Computed example of a mutant assay.
Amino acid sequence: MEPQEVPPRQLLERQVAVVATLGEVVAAVTGRHRDARQRVSPVFLRAALGSFTRNLCEILDHGDVTSLRYFGVPSLGRALAAFEATPEACDNAIAAVVAWRKMVDALQGRWGQLACEAAELCAATTQARDPQDKAARRGTDRDKLVAAGRWPTVDWDWEEEEEVASVGGTRDAWEAAAASEEEVAINEEEVAMSEEELAANEEEAAINKEEVAIKEEELATNEEELATNKEEVATSQATGEAVVAASRARAAARRGHWAEAALEPLQRLVAACDSAIAFTRNMQFYLWEINVILKFGDQASRDVLEALEAKVAEFQQLWDASARLCREYLLGTLELIDKLLLSPYGGPGGPSGPGSRVVTERCREAIENIPRLLWGQ
């Protein structure tokens, strides 16, 4: 068991620090930010902070030494008085220490859970401040069915045919000459017709060239219009993407207004909860010392009895001071914090709101009165 290092006053101040820091978080999420139209914080954060506030209330309101007797927790003072009167009552005193140790251990566990809640709120706020918009990539693995159509193949038997023309050599020479003259006349007529067709074709070709030139000019005009349209489309797409990006940036910035304001006090709230756990560690150390004296001390020695009385008195004094601190100052402050969380937008919350100022003032007053509470006044 490590020796206690934190003075009692600081232990109680750390409890007040948790409440004060919670008040700063609530002031941050209920205040106005740069964009007045945007909700100051999402519903989940207010609900989570409300649950955190109630859990903190239950932890701090652990009851004093007298009231705990009605819940089955024995009084260490009474157990020690019985021990002084009858030394054989040592087992009863040790049993009382064990009962207190179980309750303090449970309280320490609840402080640890509260610190985890604060850490989760801090992580959620960090994500809201730095949103990472990731495009959803959905892969659809589907089997591609390829229909392969087979045409029936037909084997064809190709046969090469040859025509052999034979000319009879018995024709007369005049018949051959006559045929040649007729062919020449036909050829001359065909040439004349070809020249006429060629002239017509040349005229038609000239007309076609003119039409082609006109079409090429129209095509050039169309290509220029197409290029202009493509440029306009690209400009429109770029403008649309810029508008969408700017809209998303503004939305992200609005979401980040409350998160940016709440993140720093939330981080301090996590640290404050971790620091406040020292109260239960110190109480465990007191109980460990008392148990060691009961088990291994000389029961007949007056010094041992005085040491027991001193340790039990310190334990009960600190425990009761913590209970009074909660009852007289912190419970009312936590109730006010809960009301601020339930108040409508633009209500008494916010860093400069009247409700937040009252929370700060009550926490300051609680710290100023800790010495009085420790002295039992």
Rank of each mutant, 00 (worst) to 15 (best):
A124W: 06
T125Y: 07
T126C: 07
T126F: 14
Q127L: 13
Q127N: 08
D130Y: 06
D130V: 07
P131K: 01
P131L: 05
D133W: 00
R137M: 12
D141E: 14
L145F: 05
V146R: 12
V146T: 12
A148P: 02
R150T: 06
R150H: 15
P152L: 14
P152S: 07
V154A: 13
D157P: 02
D157Q: 15
E159Q: 13
E159C: 08
E160I: 08
E160A: 09
E161P: 03
E161T: 09
E161D: 08
E162C: 08
E162S: 09
E163W: 02
A165H: 04
S166M: 11
S166W: 02
S166I: 15
V167A: 08
G169M: 09
G169W: 12
G169T: 12
G169Q: 06
D172R: 06
E175Y: 09
E175W: 14
A176W: 00
A177F: 10
E182W: 00
E183Q: 11
E183A: 13
A185Y: 01
A185R: 13
I186W: 03
E189Y: 06
V191F: 08
V191R: 04
V191Q: 07
A192H: 07
A192V: 14
M193D: 05
S194C: 04
E195A: 15
A199G: 14
A205C: 08
A206M: 07
A206R: 12
A206W: 10
A206F: 07
I207A: 12
I207H: 11
I207P: 05
N208S: 13
K209R: 12
E210S: 01
E211C: 05
A213P: 10
I214C: 03
K215Y: 02
E217G: 15
E217N: 09
A220E: 15
E223K: 15
E224S: 02
E225L: 09
E225C: 02
A227M: 11
N229R: 09
K230R: 12
E231P: 10
E231V: 04
E231L: 09
V233C: 01
T235H: 11
Q237G: 02
Q237F: 03
T239V: 03
T239K: 03
E241A: 08
V243E: 05
V244Y: 01
V244P: 04
A245T: 14
A245G: 07
A246C: 05
S247F: 02
R248N: 03
R248V: 00
R248Q: 05
R250F: 00
R250T: 02
R250I: 01
